[in-house]
Amino acid sequence: MEPTISFFSGFQLSDLWYLAEAAWRTLLISACAIAIGTTLGAVFGWMLYEGKLAATLTLNPILDVFRSVPLIIQLVLFYNFAPIIGLNLDPFMSGVVILSIYCASLVANVARGGMEAVGKPMRRAARSLGMSYWQDLRHVVLPIGGRAVFPSWVGVALGVMKDSALVSVLGYIELLKASQILVTRTQEPLLILTIAGAFYFALSYPISRYAAALEQRWST
């Protein structure tokens, strides 16, 4: 996948394509991590909300570890130690695993906040209509709480996308790694990094615009 670099040469149009491919891989690994992390995080958030004491004592400290240890350390440790327990994961899969857990640990708090945003009276009203616990959760708590914390969730998701740059330390050629390779070859860091930055912007801008539009629609 890595181009053979035999000599320094200037920036070419084909490099733009190379960066675009890398941006696609950034998007891919981010989307996987955000999807898995959000699902897991919602379950963790629910456990924190419902389990109260037990979950606070066990789950919360574990999530705290993933929230506070720098991602780059988690990535390197996981990538190097996973084979010992028989997990031979490539850089992409290792990145997905760690980014997902990291995302989940952040989403857990967001999800718990969302559940807390739906008051007890609202939930009693739902239950009084004959809804089961799960129907209340699905049809009342999820839409109401979800909308309340949606902006925070978008923040987490965009953060994870940017943090996916760290998977480059495992050799996964996403946007940042690709830029570094090009910088080494072309010796034009300003140009390359500006283009890479523009790609990151192009990935996150539509998401935040779309999110803002959704919020706008919900608020009316």
């Binding site: 009276p121 609202m122 009693r124 009203a125 739902a126 009084s128 209509l129 009342v140 839409p143 109401i144 909308r147 919900w218």
Partner: peptide
């Protein structure tokens, strides 16, 4: 059926 002091309409 139950009606509460707070009306608890589903806002969405």
């Amino acid at each position: 059926g139950m009606v509460f002091q707070q009306w608890n309409s589903f806002p969405h």
